[in-house]
Design a protein around this nucleic acid. Structure first.
Length: 158
DNA sequence: GCCAACGTTGGC
DNA sequence: GCCAACGTTGGC
């Protein structure tokens, strides 16, 4: 029995890594995640081929700006071993890496940003617990149901 | 740039 | 194992 495709939303600050950057390089290791819950989603939940909503955070109009695809299984994030990296973790070793990542491949850029404001208007349809709009939630990677995926992308302007 | 919310750290 | 202090996230 084959496992069903899953869906995710992944946040990135466009100053650090934007949808345009992903379009340029095609595929990128999603490095720098230093939150256990987000790591666990990549390690335990993601499968090659899963759908990703690419979200720009900490910017003028936060929101979904494109889609991408999970391109690899989880593997150790190299930046944890690099003392010169912002993401260096002195407690991580190659024998026991603490942080894993997946590669994400560019799919497409939306015609226009699906803004957080717009998303909030559909809170009822998305469900009470949708973490993106739950108060105080700062998870940078979160699961999205097939229904939420469909609803969110239907908000794209034509 | 502010700051509320929240995760992590480390002393005890 | 509690919890205060601290650091970070991310909307505004």
């Amino acid at each position: 029995m084959t496992s069903r495709k899953r869906y995710w939303l992944m946040k990135s600050e466009p100053d650090a890594f934007s949808i345009d950057d992903l379009q340029r390089v095609g595929q990128e290791p999603w490095n720098g995640v230093r939150n256990y819950q987000a790591r666990n989603f990549m390690r335990d939940g993601m499968k090659v081929g899963d759908g990703v909503l690419f979200y720009h955070s900490n910017t003028k109009v936060p929101g979904i700006v494109g889609t991408a695809t999970v391109a690899t299984e989880a593997y150790p994030d190299e930046t944890q071993f690099d003392p010169k990296s912002d993401y260096y973790d002195p407690k991580a070793t190659r024998e026991e890496p603490r942080w894993l990542l997946v590669d994400v491949a560019f799919d497409r850029k939306l015609r226009d940003t699906i803004s957080l404001d717009e998303i909030k208007l559909h809170a009822d349809a998305l469900g009470e617990g949708f973490p993106l709009i739950a108060r105080g939630n700062r998870l940078s990677i979160l699961p999205v149901t097939a229904a939420q995926w469909k609803l969110l992308l239907s908000l794209e302007k034509h």
